[in-house]
């Protein structure tokens, strides 16, 4: 499994939480450490399938300079 948003490989993903009902595992939430995307594996494909997501909604963590700062950090980094 890769990140649905930036396509980063499994090693960059973190398992956040598993929704359980008794012994049953209902779904799992994942987090991409590279692009910060969070998702649940039970969501519709439009949200969690890289191929189905519109290009505008993809992320490019290789080029962080593409993204503006809301409030630039005071230390300039």
């Amino acid at each position: 499994m890769n990140c649905p948003r930036c396509n980063s490989a499994q090693e960059h993903l973190r398992t956040e939480y598993q929704g359980r009902e008794g012994d049953e595992l209902v779904w799992t939430v994942f987090y991409c450490r590279r692009c910060s995307f969070t998702w649940r594996d039970s969501e519709p494909a439009e949200s969690i399938d890289y191929a189905e997501r519109e290009a505008w909604f993809r992320a490019d963590p290789d080029h962080p300079e593409k993204y503006k700062h809301n409030i630039p950090p005071a230390d300039g980094n």
Binding site: V29, T38, R53, E54
Partner: peptide, 12 residues
């Protein structure tokens, strides 16, 4: 009970 509000939000 966190959830995604709109389908293409970046997270919860």
């Amino acid at each position: 009970p966190l959830y995604r509000i709109n389908a293409l939000d970046g997270g919860f």
